[in-house]
Amino acid sequence: MITCSKDAYYLAVLSRFSVKVDGVKCFTFDEMAVATRDFDISAQVGQGGYGKVYRGNLADGTTVAIKRAHEDSLQGSKEFCTEIELLSRLHHRNLVSLVGYCDEEDEQMLVYEFMPNGTLRDHLSAKTERPLSFGQRVHIALGAAKGLLYLHTEANPPIFHRDVKASNILLDSKFVAKVADFGLSRLAPVPDIEGTLPAHISTVVKGTPGYLDPEYFLTHKLTERSDVYSLGVVFLELLTGMKPIQHGKNIVREVKSFHSGSLLIWLLVHR
């Protein structure tokens, strides 16, 4: 079992600013099993490299999404505690809300508000039965941008998401976009003892191919611009329906290769 209070990173985070993890419940494994009918396959609504996502019903009737990590892909105490600690203090219409977590019996689970319309990537797939209208795409783009702007300018201290992508933008019943998955996020630099604010964080490169800011990839210098680049890739997905990397083609290079006069025709053909 991972004990967040003993995690060195978590303690380092708490030492930088005093935050109590209020409003986030620690669930037992039994509660999660009951909520998902023993993790029945019919309750599964998603799957990724980290594990599976289930739709669950808590004892009070609240419908939630439960992200359960595979045994061989546990996030580790650092990422697990990062997401719990950050989401517990972030409150914005365009950020997913954390309801609670479970950390026992070699299990790691995060419990979120349930998003009935899944991920943005689900609706950009060629197999989707209900393609998004242009108005919906603009609405989603604005919502995701507002969520990211909040992280960069209003959170205290600011936060770099570090893994902005279509599958990390969730959609509620009204297709309001909510940025999710803060396991790789980093706190922005804070002023040193002389009051100087560092321009970047030097860090190991993390993120998803196709969305990674090339400058960050080459220099290992993380700034808010890295998130903005990734969001720009999401915007191109919204416009074209293409994946960031598809059949060996990179969406950014494909769009840049067209002159403005022929770009509209290209977009219409590839949507």
Rank of each mutant, 00 (worst) to 15 (best):
L110A: 04
V111L: 05
V111S: 06
Y112D: 02
Y112V: 03
E113I: 00
E113A: 09
M115W: 00
N117L: 12
G118I: 10
T119E: 09
L120K: 06
L120H: 05
R121P: 05
D122M: 13
D122C: 04
L124G: 07
K127R: 15
T128K: 08
T128E: 07
E129I: 10
E129G: 00
E129T: 14
R130I: 12
R130C: 14
L132R: 07
L132C: 00
S133D: 03
S133Q: 09
F134P: 08
G135V: 11
R137H: 10
R137N: 07
R137V: 13
V138K: 02
I140K: 04
A141L: 11
A141R: 00
L142A: 14
L142Y: 14
G143C: 13
A144E: 00
A144Q: 05
A145E: 11
A145V: 02
K146Q: 14
K146W: 13
G147Q: 00
L148Q: 00
L149G: 13
L149N: 13
Y150E: 08
L151Y: 02
L151K: 04
L151A: 05
H152G: 03
H152S: 11
T153Y: 13
E154G: 00
A155D: 09
P158T: 08
P158M: 11
I159V: 15
H161P: 09
H161F: 08
V164W: 04
V164S: 02
A166I: 04
A166R: 00
A166C: 01
S167P: 01
S167V: 04
N168I: 03
N168A: 05
N168G: 00
I169V: 15
L170M: 14
L171A: 01
L171N: 03
L171F: 11
D172K: 07
K174I: 08
V176W: 01
A177G: 13
K178P: 04
K178E: 13
V179R: 06
A180H: 02
A180L: 12
D181Q: 08
D181G: 03
F182R: 01
F182I: 02
G183H: 04
L184Y: 09
L184D: 06
L184E: 10
L184G: 03
S185A: 15
S185H: 07
S185D: 09
